Each structure stands twice: as structure tokens, then as C-alpha cells.
Computed example of a mutant assay.
Amino acid sequence: MSAESGNIARMRAFVEQVHEGGRVELIDDFLHADFRNRSAKNGQPDDRRGVVAVTRALHTAFAGLEVEIVHCVETGDVVATHKIYRGRHVGEWLGTPPSGQDADFRVMDFVRMRDGRFAEHWSVLGPLTAGIPEEPA
């Protein structure tokens, strides 16, 4: 078995410390100054500020947030991760009102690395599962 690459180790550290841990003060250590999120939604900043906003939104929406990295692979200068985000849904998440129940969603991310930092990002978010309030009949 080969040792984990530096880029994969950086991605794992980012997920653990920033997304799961909520340590937005570390974002500048992981992202290039000219970082661009190619999947930013309309009205969302596509730079470091957007990453700060998403991280804060995650921790507002999900109490006890945990992030499981299912797969993390690298090809060339791109690191791809398949992750599951889990927590108690206590705040609005992407327009879904809080349910108070345990919930999860999956994310597939692709990050182009440059000099050990994130330079570009693309993602696909799966639907929020479990804990979604049922609509009245």
C-alpha cells in the first residue's frame, strides 16, 4: 500500500478541520488567494468568502455535524472526494426548513490543487435525506 499523497492529506485535513470542525479561520491556509468555486450558486461569492459562508451555514443548519469521507482519490492535480454530511437538522439548509431530526446528504467534490492549496472547486450535492418534514395532506 502506498502512502497517501500530500494533496489527499490536505483535503482530509480541510474536511476535518474546516468543514467538520468549523474552523473558518484556517480557510486562508487551505485556499489560494485567487481560489474560485465553479459551482457557486447565484448570489453566493465564488471566492474564499463563499467557503466561509458555506461552512458557517453548515454549522448553523446541523448540530453535531460529522463528515465521513467515503472516497478520496487524486488524478493529476485534481482531488475528488465523495462525502456524507450528517447531523441534527436544526436550521435552514438550502431552503429546507429545520426538522429537528437526524439528517444527511452526500457531496461529490473536485478540487484542482496548486502548490498544496485549493485553486478551483466543482461540486454536486445530493438531496437532504431523513428529517425532511412531511408536507401536510
Rank of each mutant, 00 (worst) to 15 (best):
W93Y: 14
A103R: 04
E120D: 11
Q17A: 05
D102A: 06
E74W: 15
K41A: 13
A33W: 14
A130K: 03
S5I: 07
P98G: 11
A119W: 04
R114L: 07
V79W: 04
G50L: 03
H59Y: 06
F118S: 14
R49Y: 01
G126T: 10
D34R: 08
F14T: 07
I69F: 01
I27T: 09
T75G: 15
V15I: 15
I8A: 10
G126S: 05
A130D: 13
G6C: 13
V15P: 02
K83W: 00
F35Y: 14
G50K: 05
M1Y: 01
P133Y: 07
A40E: 00
A103I: 00
G50W: 07
T60P: 00
A9P: 15
A57S: 15
A3K: 15
C72G: 07
I132L: 02
P133W: 01
P98C: 01
A13N: 10
P133A: 00
E120K: 09
R48W: 11
A9W: 11
V107H: 02
L125F: 15
R38F: 10
R112F: 00
M11S: 12
R106S: 11
R88L: 07
V107N: 07
V24W: 01
E135M: 01
I8T: 12
I27N: 04
R23L: 02
S99P: 06
P127D: 12
S123C: 14
H59C: 08
F118G: 11
G22C: 13
M108V: 01
V15W: 02
I132M: 03
R114C: 08
V70D: 03
I8K: 14
I8D: 02
R117Y: 12
D29T: 05
D104H: 07
A103H: 00
V70C: 04
V78E: 12
E134K: 01
N7F: 14
A103L: 02
N7G: 13
V90P: 04
G76E: 06
V111Q: 08
H71V: 14
V15D: 04
M11Q: 10
R49T: 04
A137E: 12
A3G: 12
G50D: 09
P136L: 01
T60S: 00
R56F: 08
F105P: 04
D46F: 06
W122H: 06
S2N: 09
K41D: 02
R117H: 08
V78D: 12
Q17H: 04
R106E: 08
P45K: 09
R38E: 13
D115E: 14
R117S: 10
P98R: 03
V52N: 08
L128D: 07
D109A: 03
G22A: 15
M11G: 14
D77E: 09
R23Y: 00
A103F: 00
G116T: 11
R49C: 10
A119L: 15
V24R: 00
A61P: 02
V78K: 08
